[in-house]
C-alpha cells in the first residue's frame, strides 16, 4: 500500500517550514505521520508536498513555569504518557496520551499532529478541551494563540490555517486548588479509536468543586464540551454530589441527528455510552484525588 506520489522537504526551522508552506496549497505538514500516512495510503489525503518538521528540536519537550505548562507540538504521546509530573498535575492529558493506539504508535505520534488533524474519534481533542489548552500556531504574520474552545470546527477541520503550523499547546496551572482529572473511553474493538471518550478536569478546594471542564470525543463530528455536566458540578461538595445524576444530562446540549452514527455504533448507543463514561471519568478523577492525598 503505497501513498500516491508527492514531493518531500525537510524543514530545518519553523521559518523554513513556513516558507515551504507559503504559496503551496497542496502542501501538508508531517512529523510523526501516524495520522497522515495511513490517510495517504488509503487515498483520503493526497498532499502534493510534505513538509517534514520532525527534526525541529525546539518544538519538542515539556516546560513548566509558574502558571503554565507548555508542551511542544512534536512531543510524542509516549513522552507525555511517561511524564510523572504531568500525571500528577495534568492527569487528563497524560491518561489520554496513554490511551492512544499502542506503544509503537505512541513512540512516533505527536500531540501537535493529533490536535492539528482534528480526528473526531481520537483521544486528545477531549483532553485538551478539558485541560483548557491554548493552541499556539505560527503563520506568515507571526504567532497566533487560539483558545481551544474555538479550535475544533468539524471532522478533520480546525481553526488552523493552511499556511500555519501548530507549534505547541499551553495549559494553565492551578494556583490554589488541587487539580485532578481523568480520561476514559469505549474503544472500537477493531481500531481502538474512541466510540466515545470522556475527559474530565476538576479543581477541588476543601472538598468542594471549584471549577469543572468536561469534554467528549467520538460522539460528535469534533471534540465538544459537555456544559450541562460542568454546570451540575461547580460549587458542589464531593460528599454530596451524585455523579450518576450529573452525568445523566451529558447529551442534553447535543443534537442527536448530528451525532456520529455508523456501522460500529448508533447515535443512540453512543449517547448512552456518553453518560456511562462521563460518570466513570468523574469517579476516576475523584479516586485519583483521594489517592494523592496524604493518609492520616
Amino acid at each position: 500500500m503505497y501513498p500516491s506520489e508527492f514531493d518531500y522537504e525537510r524543514a530545518e526551522t519553523v521559518d523554513h517550514a513556513l516558507e515551504l508552506l507559503s504559496g503551496d496549497p497542496e502542501a501538508k505538514i508531517i512529523s510523526g505521520g501516524h495520522s497522515l500516512i495511513p490517510m495517504m495510503k488509503s487515498g483520503l489525503a493526497n498532499p502534493g508536498t510534505l513538509v517534514d518538521i520532525g527534526e525541529i528540536d525546539e518544538l519538542t519537550g515539556i516546560e513548566w513555569d509558574d502558571d503554565t505548562v507548555s508542551v511542544g507540538a512534536l512531543t510524542t504521546y509516549a513522552t507525555i504518557a511517561d511524564d510523572d509530573e504531568l500525571w500528577d498535575e495534568l492527569p487528563v492529558l497524560a491518561e489520554a496520551a496513554h490511551e492512544v493506539g499502542d506503544i509503537q504508535v505512541r513512540n512516533r505520534g505527536t500531540i501537535g499532529g493529533n490536535v492539528a488533524h482534528g480526528d473526531p474519534a481520537s483521544d486528545l481533542p477531549a483532553a485538551v478541551l478539558a485541560a483548557d489548552a491554548t493552541v499556539v500556531v505560527q503563520g506568515p504574520d507571526g504567532e497566533r494563540r487560539i483558545d481551544v474552545d474555538d479550535f475544533f470546527l468539524g471532522m478533520y477541520a480546525t481553526e488552523l490555517g493552511e499556511d500555519e503550523i501548530l507549534t505547541g499547546l499551553e495549559f494553565p496551572r492551578s494556583e490554589n486548588a488541587t487539580t485532578t482529572g481523568a480520561y476514559v473511553k469505549k474503544p472500537s474493538p477493531s481500531s481502538g479509536y474512541a466510540l466515545v471518550g470522556v475527559a474530565v478536569s476538576l479543581e477541588v478546594d476543601d472538598g468542594r468543586i471549584e471549577s469543572a471542564r468536561v469534554a467528549a470525543n467520538g460522539i460528535m463530528d469534533h471534540g465538544v464540551r459537555l456544559e450541562p455536566v460542568e454546570d451540575g458540578l461547580v460549587g458542589e461538595s464531593l460528599d454530596d454530589v451524585s455523579f450518576e445524576d450529573v452525568a445523566a444530562v451529558a447529551d442534553e446540549d447535543l443534537e442527536e441527528f448530528m451525532m456520529m452514527d455508523d456501522i460500529q455504533a448508533s447515535a443512540e448507543f453512543r449517547a448512552q455510552l456518553l453518560k456511562v463514561y462521563t460518570e466513570e471519568a468523574l469517579n476516576d478523577a475523584v479516586d485519583r484525588l483521594d489517592a494523592s492525598l496524604p493518609t492520616a
Binding site: M1, Y8, G33, H34, I37, P38, K41, S42, L50, A78, G101, D102, I103, Q104, V105, N107, R108, S191
Partner: peptide, 23 residues
C-alpha cells in the same frame, strides 16, 4: 500495512515503531 498488526516493528533510534508507517 496500516499500522495495526505490528509485524513490521523495528527500533528507530532505540524506540519500537511500525516501519510501514514511517517514510
Amino acid at each position: 500495512e496500516s499500522s495495526m498488526c505490528g509485524a513490521c516493528t523495528i527500533h528507530l533510534d532505540g524506540e519500537a515503531v511500525k516501519s510501514c508507517t514511517v517514510l
